[in-house]
Design a binder for these strands. Structure first.
Length: 645
RNA sequence: GCCAUCGUAGCUCAGUCGGUAGAGCGCGUCCUUGGUAAGGACGAGGUCACCGGUUCAAUCCCGGUCGAUGGCUCCA
């Protein structure tokens, strides 16, 4: 039997069964030397793997395609493992896959690895690359694999082997290093052009905390040195945007030892927080929401009723009041339903959209805390829609539209939707779930929003849509969520009366757009790299007199004028040179600096310098500057507009 | 919670192979009043995270606690 291939769309090639991709090399023409593997009907094969079916063939060449980098980094992981083996003899290997931007390998090793070991490991890796070992692939079965393991310590590999059942087991070797591995790999180690080890970390075997902890080394690799350099530079850039750094630097917030995971908002951060709240309240007003506020501490009984005590106790804080037990709320919904239950509703009253900026507390394990991204107390921009089953689609559509609008207003123009359906462990009837999933699906279809399906990933109480936004440096964050809840209306016996005066269950929709205000602000800090649009900037304007002695009074009067109009403005009267004061405010990313000297005092103008270095050529009358800035702020413009032609 | 690393002035970091510490920035005072990214001089600031152990002597060595960072697990 022979295999038939269509190479790069035109060449027809026949090869015997079990042929390898390297036999297709001669048809590659001038890229032949760059070929490191093939895609056969979209699946990646290296040069070492016997092929058992024909199909469409495309060459994978040494470039930065995901397929090429996958081959490269997988082999880089093996090279690293071999280097570790050469240096520390008593090592046992677990797994070493590629990841988004690189690779890792997990080891069980007596010696505790630290970054200080990297030099030695990298040096050994360089040797292995230079020695340019060919990779050999060997296929066998369970017994054959056992034979290869022989007397080696290979408990992890043996465990993986058992899960392979009767499939073919493959091993890859280079020099004296052999690893049970599915592949694919580079033709030889010499193809690795540039690599770097990045960090060490503990990692549970198979990601399960009951399993032993292994030592993991993360690294990355490229074909070309300059690509590695660019990547490392990008890491540096991301570091500069780190909100954990920028936050204290720009005096936005801090964490104190007395409150691990509980953010302290300084004035600057409060300005961000309050502006975002104000913005959101406008949106809520436009869309006919009501706003409620419910207590932070409520009787524990409520949490038994809601099911949180049963499912979420580990993450809750408890306290006593007058010998009764109370809990600090980890979610707003149970409290919110009290407000609903306090009324009596007819179908004519629905839908009811109840928003709440609720401060919730959740006990998070100490090791997971991370700046504003993961905290123990945060404010959800929560809302609950109570509606009839027929109204549900419209409500979901409305939420989706609002989500899009809000993200766009902040400059997050790339977002993706995920639809999660019924998990195995769940409550509610089949009809409820079918209806719920249909509602979400149809709402997405109505707005022509593409989405990814996550079967079985819904909450136990209902299906949901999750929304991910992409920031300025292409990182993705989960923020928004729209969930249908079959649990609460039942548990709390929520009702409305229909046109026949009969009691009915409302559909309850649960939605958040920012998710957590704290986290969203963290994301925004990194997205803007601290350079907030003027409507958000803690200080919008700073007035700098050229000479504090001669023009300080004028600067102060300009400040008062702006302040009266609601502009967040400061003067810099420090006894420092003009250059020095400009530099300092530049570093604080203050949107506008107004430099005033003799000419400005005489003409009643201000000389405008923007933080992006643009200098408005003509000094502007104070009133003109104010009206232009107020317009920019009112528009919530993402860009600085004054001085832009 | 687990693994690893770290904790020295408000900030960024040196340093001490055990004899109680230093720089730059910032801050204060003075000189300088400067036209668009660091003018100059002087000065004040630290129980070297906290608790315990070893030692004649601990910021340094050892143990513990707390906090931070990078991961794992979990999650907004």
């Amino acid at each position: 039997m022979s295999l038939h291939f269509v190479v790069e769309g035109d060449q027809q090639v026949d090869l015997p069964e079990g042929a390898k991709a390297d036999q297709l090399l001669e048809y590659a023409g001038k890229i032949q030397k760059k070929v490191i593997g093939i895609q056969l009907d979209g699946k990646i094969y290296d040069m070492h793997t016997p092929l058992h079916g024909g199909g469409e063939v495309n060459y994978i060449v040494k470039d930065n395609s995901p397929e090429a980098l996958h081959l490269l980094r997988h082999t880089a992981a093996h090279v690293m493992a071999q280097a570790v083996m050469r240096i520390f003899k008593d090592v046992e290997f677990a797994i070493g896959p590629t990841i988004e931007d690189g690779f890792y390998y997990d080891f069980d090793l007596e010696h505790t690895l630290t970054p200080d070991d990297f030099d030695a490991i990298e040096a050994e890796m360089k040797n292995i690359i230079k020695e340019n070992y060919h990779l050999e692939r060997m296929e066998t079965d369970q017994d054959g694999a056992e034979e290869i393991f022989g007397q080696q310590r290979a408990e992890f590999k043996r465990e993986l082997l058992r899960d392979l059942n009767d499939q073919v087991v493959s091993f890859y070797s280079q020099d004296d290093f052999t690893d049970m591995c599915r592949g694919p790999h580079l033709p030889s180690t010499g193809y690795i052009g540039a690599f770097k080890l990045l960090s060490v970390a503990g990692a549970y075997w198979r990601g399960n905390e009951v399993n032993p902890m292994l030592q993991r080394i993360y690294g990355t690799a490229f074909f070309d040195k300059k690509d590695l350099k660019a990547y490392l530079l990008q890491l540096e850039e991301a570091k500069k945007r780190d909100h954990k750094k920028l936050g204290p630097q720009l005096d936005l917030f801090s964490f104190q030892p007395e409150g691990p995971g509980f953010p302290f908002w300084h004035n600057g951060g409060s300005v961000l927080f309050n502006n975002i709240l104000e913005y959101m309240r406008e949106k809520l007003h436009d869309r006919d929401y009501e706003e409620i506020r419910t207590p932070i501490i409520l009787n524990e009984q409520l949490w038994h009723e809601s099911g949180h005590w049963e499912h979420y106790k580990e993450n809750m804080y408890f306290t006593d009041i007058d010998e009764s037990e109370f809990a600090v709320k980890p979610m707003n919904c149970p409290g919110g339903t009290r407000v609903y239950k306090n009324g009596y509703y007819s179908y004519r009253d629905l839908p009811i959209r109840m928003a709440e900026f609720g401060l919730v507390h959740r006990h998070e394990k100490s090791g997971v805390l991370s700046g504003l991204f993961r905290v123990r107390s945060f404010t959800q921009d929560d809302a609950h829609h109570y509606c009839t089953p027929d109204q549900a689609i419209k409500e979901v559509i409305d939420c989706l539209e609002l989500l899009k609008e809000v993200y766009n207003d902040f400059g997050f123009t790339n977002y993706t939707f995920e639809l999660s359906t019924r998990p195995e462990k769940s409550i509610g009837t089949d009809e409820q779930w079918a209806h719920g999933e249909k509602v979400l699906r149809e709402a997405l279809a109505e707005l022509e929003l593409p989405y990814q399906l996550n079967p079985g990933d819904g909450a136990f109480y209902g299906p949901k849509i999750d929304v991910h936004i992409q920031d300025a440096i292409k990182r993705v964050w989960q923020c928004g969520t729209i969930q249908i809840d079959f649990s609460m209306p039942e548990r709390f016996d929520l009702t409305y009366v229909d046109s026949n005066s009969e009691k009915q269950r409302p559909v309850m929709l649960h939605r958040a757009i920012f998710g957590s205000l704290e986290r969203f602000i963290g994301i925004a800090i990194e997205h803007y790299a601290g350079k907030f649009p003027s409507w958000l900037a803690p200080t919008q304007v700073v007035v700098i007199p050229i000479s504090t002695e001669r023009f300080g009074d004028y600067a102060e009067s300009v400040r008062r004028d702006l302040k009266r109009l609601g502009i967040r403005v400061k003067t810099d009267m420090r006894n420092e040179s003009l250059n020095k004061r400009i530099r300092d405010h530049q570093k604080l990313y203050t949107p506008y600096m107004l430099v005033v000297g003799e000419q400005e005092v005489e003409a009643g103008t201000v000389n405008v310098r923007r933080r992006d270095g643009v200098r408005v050529p003509e000094a502007l009358p104070v009133e003109q500057f104010c009206s232009e800035l107020l317009e920019e702020i009112a528009d919530r413009s993402l860009n600085l507009t004054i001085g832009t032609v």
